[in-house]
């Protein structure tokens, strides 16, 4: 995957949760699968919300209670309530990435 205007750069995707150990890791595993199915190779990281504030990412994924505060922190912010639903996440990511022109 390449981003517009910078074809060498891989997308940086961050999954977030309160502690950055459990929920965000479950979500990361689901995001990995979804992104792979979309044909994207990305850099993935799972972090707690407070660390996430100081990290630049292209895509942030988390539950509503966590993504609300990241609305303007990344070009793409995806909110998902079921961290184990690959299909649902894939659909949301596809739509959001296409809107950015990052996926065609």
């Amino acid at each position: 995957m390449t981003t517009k205007g910078n074809p060498e750069k891989r997308l940086k995707v961050m999954t977030v949760c309160g502690v950055g150990m459990g929920s965000s890791l479950i979500l990361r595993t689901t995001a990995e699968k979804a992104l792979k199915q979309l044909g994207l190779e990305v850099d993935l990281e799972h972090v707690d919300v407070s660390s996430a504030r100081s990290i630049d990412a292209d895509v942030i994924i988390g539950q509503a209670m966590h993504t609300e505060e990241f609305e303007d922190a990344a070009p793409v912010v995806v909110t998902i309530s079921d961290f184990t639903d690959v299909e649902a996440l894939k659909g949301k990511l596809k739509e959001a990435l296409e809107a950015q022109g990052w996926l065609t």
């Binding site: 949760c17 309160g18 502690v19 150990m21 459990g22 929920s23 479950i26 979500l27 539950q63 209670m65 966590h66 309530s81 079921d82 961290f83 184990t84 639903d85």
Partner: peptide, 22 residues
Amino acid sequence: EMVEDEGPYVVVAPGIALAHAR
């Protein structure tokens, strides 16, 4: 306390909670 402080984000999927601390 994690849930009390940070909210019910440990409920990671419909019907499923993943409790833990540090």
